[in-house]
C-alpha cells in the first residue's frame, strides 16, 4: 500500500493546480493516490476531465470550507 501524496494547488488558478498535479504524477509510482487541493472551482471540474482523458483514475471530489479535494490514482 502506497501513501497518498498531497498536491497543494490552493490559491492558484486554472491551469495551475492541473500543472502541479502533472508534475507530481511524473514522480509518482503506478498505483499511487494523489490528492489535489484547489480553491479554484474551474480546476475542480477540469482535473477529473483531464484524468479521464489521459487514462488515469478519478476516485473522488469533495469540497470543504472552500477547498476542493480531488483524489486520483496513477494508472500508467
Amino acid at each position: 500500500m502506497t501513501e497518498k501524496k498531497v498536491v497543494d494547488g490552493r490559491g492558484s488558478f486554472c491551469p495551475g493546480p492541473l500543472m502541479e498535479l502533472i508534475a507530481a504524477l511524473k514522480n509518482a509510482q503506478v498505483g499511487d493516490e494523489l490528492e489535489v487541493l484547489s480553491t479554484d472551482k474551474g480546476s475542480a471540474q477540469d482535473i477529473p476531465e483531464w484524468v479521464n482523458k489521459v487514462g488515469h483514475q478519478h476516485l473522488s471530489t469533495h469540497e470543504a470550507d472552500g477547498v476542493w479535494h480531488i483524489t486520483i490514482r496513477k494508472v500508467k
Partner: peptide, 17 residues
C-alpha cells in the same frame, strides 16, 4: 494581483511536461 500562473511558465511547462 491574483496568483494566475504566468504565461511564460505555462509555455515552459508545455515543453517540459
Amino acid at each position: 494581483s491574483r496568483r494566475v500562473p504566468e504565461y511564460r511558465s505555462l509555455f515552459e511547462q508545455a515543453v517540459s511536461l
